[in-house]
């Protein structure tokens, strides 16, 4: 099939960008969306033009590198699917497909479809961890954890940090991302000693990075490729309120 792409092209962080119309001929339904872009890029290079820059790495839906807002939806139309796992069999011959970067003040565009998501790393560095020294841990079975608690922690921990939640949110809120990390540790005994401190510091960093606040539209949950549930935002809010009350600093 033959498609027409309207792709965001932007030379660097300081340049002005614009949508460029690019033909994508001979697309096979078995291709992934990124493989389709690979083929387009090979054509562009052949014509002496610069290829479209986009983030990608594992191409199996787990590293969280790939992004793209496809026809207005982060990661495209398939539920619970990253862009790298979206296949062209979901498109029809002749379709016009708009491809844009994840947009948020906290995710500046670096080039074309590539954005800087370093803000997520800085939120993690602010408190998304359990402070443990290498070496002194007790036997792993010393502390039994109910399967249900471990499962809830795992549901939250499956976040891949792609930022689709931010891109989908009209407030560019990062609360699904932050909530997922807070929830993971909140359900585990290992997370308890730093529970208040963690949520306060992560939220403070989230605010400093320029992410907005949640207004309960659940767009984030709808686009999350790992289908992280908005209950983690509720848990984040609950923990944050409690921590504020208990905070003696």
């Amino acid at each position: 099939m033959n498609l027409t792409l309207k792709v965001w092209r932007q030379k660097n962080a300081h340049a002005t960008g614009a949508l460029q119309s690019i033909a994508a001929p001979d697309v096979s339904p078995d291709m992934s969306f990124l493989e389709m872009l690979d083929v387009v890029n090979e054509r562009l290079i052949g014509q002496g033009e610069e290829p479209i820059a986009f983030d990608h790495d594992c191409r199996e839906g787990i590293c969280g590198a790939c992004s793209l807002v496809i026809d207005g939806v982060p990661h495209g139309p398939e539920r619970g699917t990253t862009t790298c796992q979206l296949h062209m069999r979901h498109y029809q011959d002749g379709a016009v497909v708009t491809v844009e970067p994840f947009r948020a003040a906290a995710f500046p565009v670096l080039r074309d479809l590539v954005v800087d998501r370093g803000a997520f790393d800085r939120i993690q560095a602010a408190g998304g961890f359990v402070s443990v020294r290498t070496g002194g841990a007790p036997d792993a079975n010393a502390l039994p954890i109910a399967k249900s608690a471990a499962d809830l922690a795992m549901d939250a921990a499956s976040c891949i940090g792609c930022g689709a939640c931010v891109a989908a949110c009209k407030n560019a809120a990062a609360m699904l991302f932050v909530g997922a990390k807070v929830s993971q540790f909140a359900h585990l005994p290992q997370g308890q000693p730093e529970r208040d401190r963690r949520v306060l510091q992560m939220v403070a960093q989230m605010d400093r990075e320029g992410f907005g606040a949640c207004t309960n539209l659940y767009e984030c949950e709808a686009v999350c490729p790992k289908e992280i549930a908005v209950r983690v935002i509720a848990e984040l809010n609950r923990d944050y309120r409690g921590a504020l009350l208990r905070n003696e600093d």
């Binding site: 359990v130 471990a150 993971q184 290992q190």
Partner: peptide, 22 residues
Amino acid sequence: VNIIDHMTALGVPFAREYGGHL
């Protein structure tokens, strides 16, 4: 064996049995 102890301590949600053990 140290690896499993350490990774559990830092909050890796390994699969568990109903009794709470790994």
